[in-house]
Design a protein around this nucleic acid. Structure first.
Length: 109
DNA sequence: GGGCTGACGGTTG
DNA sequence: GCAACCGCCAGCC
């Protein structure tokens, strides 16, 4: 089978990411849970790393629960991801991590 | 079919 | 508060 599973797990992930409003961020575990896989955080990461072209989803708004940005090899640089987020109004802490307390996505609802 | 890999998460030191 | 370790799950060789 392709990148999408029978249940459309990846499809749900992409859909959820599309629901994330500018200025907010979501964690892999959060998206995984919303997609029906509470323990599938790694699959979310795998999903976004193999995203099909043309979806144009805000993957820069998805990050680890710790608030850390993606590794350098994903985007050209972490500074690029950070720039996009700051441009959308996401607050950063002095330590260089996201201010999850204030910017975490509330969910689709 | 078996084993390796990975944009993670939670616990422990 | 940060780093290392182990545990999860699906895709790929």
């Amino acid at each position: 089978m392709g990148i999408e599973t029978q249940d459309g797990f990846y499809k749900k992930i992409y859909q959820l990411i599309g629901e994330i409003p500018a200025g907010s961020v979501a964690t892999y575990g959060q998206l995984a849970k919303l997609a029906g896989k509470p323990r599938g955080a790694r699959q979310v990461g795998y999903a976004v790393s193999h995203v099909p072209d043309g979806l144009k989803l805000p993957f820069h708004r998805v990050m680890a629960s710790s608030g850390k940005l993606a590794p350098d090899h994903v985007f050209e640089d972490q500074s690029f991801q950070r720039m996009l987020l700051e441009m959308e109004g996401v607050s950063f802490l002095p330590s260089g991590k996201i201010d999850m307390k204030h910017c975490l996505w509330q969910g689709p609802n």
